[in-house]
Amino acid sequence: MPETLALETREVSVTPVPHTHDEPARSAVSSRLLPVLEASLIWIFLLGGWFVAAEYLPLGDNPLVPSPLITARALWDSLPELWLGTISSFGILVPGFLLASLAGIGLGLSIGTSPRLQRAFFPFARVAAPVPPTVYIPYAIAILPTFKLSAIFVVFIGAFWPIFQNAAAGAHALEERYRDNARILGLSGFEYHRRVVFPAALPHIFSGMAVGLGFSFILLTVAELFGANAGLGRFVQYYADFADYPKMVAGILYTGLVTFLAMTGLEKLKRRALFWQR
């Protein structure tokens, strides 16, 4: 009966064949669980240490190390305020980072493909890029009309240089075969940059954007210490001033989580955009 036969063969080919392992069931479970367990170890260890420190160290009435439970409650109570702070902070971070990406990629690709522009711009970049962007904060606040604008400017400066440098490096490192092909096809100018240089430089650009996003968060929170009336950095500073350590720690944890989520989002975007890389 050919039908049964076909069914049987299909079943056999679909069923996982366990003969590669001595103990198939156990090794399958452990190979899936072990990495999770390994990754959890540090968290379990830190959380345990935190519990022990909060419970058994003589820290007084308003301990600098509030217990995890108290912190969790403070976090829960502060969520509405933290959410508003997030919106306020993102009102600075998003425009600053996006403008830096646009300018960094545009200038980086143009300069990276033009030896003449490189000669004109790189001597300046070598001096300007290493200046710590935090030193601009007081002057930016003094010179620009609103705090928000100054903070956007500082985030922009911090994110611009790594993105620019990586985009320029990526454009400069364009493989000769792609350049030859573009020339054979008569691609030039903006079309050449958009369809060849930009996609080829994307791996570099994403590295620059990851560094730039990290800097953006640092500069955002530092700038908020100077003059903001809302925001994530402002939240932490505000409750530190009132010695409300549970809320302060809650703010730190929350900011960490937001930064992590933003980085993860960028990483996802990168994987999606670079699907063509083997």
């Binding site: 075969r177 792609y178 030859d180 092909n181 054979i184 369809r195 060849v196 996609p199 080829a200 994307l202 063509w276 890389q277």
Partner: peptide
Amino acid sequence: VVFQDYALFPW
């Protein structure tokens, strides 16, 4: 031109 290394644009 056809080159030896497959120079299609991979993206």
